[in-house]
């Protein structure tokens, strides 16, 4: 994600680092923006990281 710079232009804050926040952050970086992904817990991943398998294909979720 590059190194932090002061007062960078075109930065976006994504609040919440669950699957939604992570996806938004990844897409935004790919679209040419700097992202601050702000998560209140010590790790990103959210609830999806707690899931064993996912419906309906029962794929592994990690």
């Amino acid at each position: 994600m590059g190194k932090a710079m002061k007062n960078r232009e075109g930065a976006v804050m994504v609040l919440g680092g669950g699957i939604a926040g992570i996806q938004a952050a990844l897409d935004l970086t790919e679209l040419g923006f700097y992202v601050y992904l702000v998560e209140k817990s010590p790790a990103v991943g959210g609830v999806m990281a707690q899931l064993d398998k996912t419906f309906p294909t029962n794929d592994c979720s990690l």
């Binding site: 976006v12 804050m13 609040l15 919440g16 939604a20 926040g21 938004a24």
Partner: peptide
Amino acid sequence: KLQIGAVILSPGF
């Protein structure tokens, strides 16, 4: 302090 142009809210449930 973060200087940002936009915000995406994805705090989950």
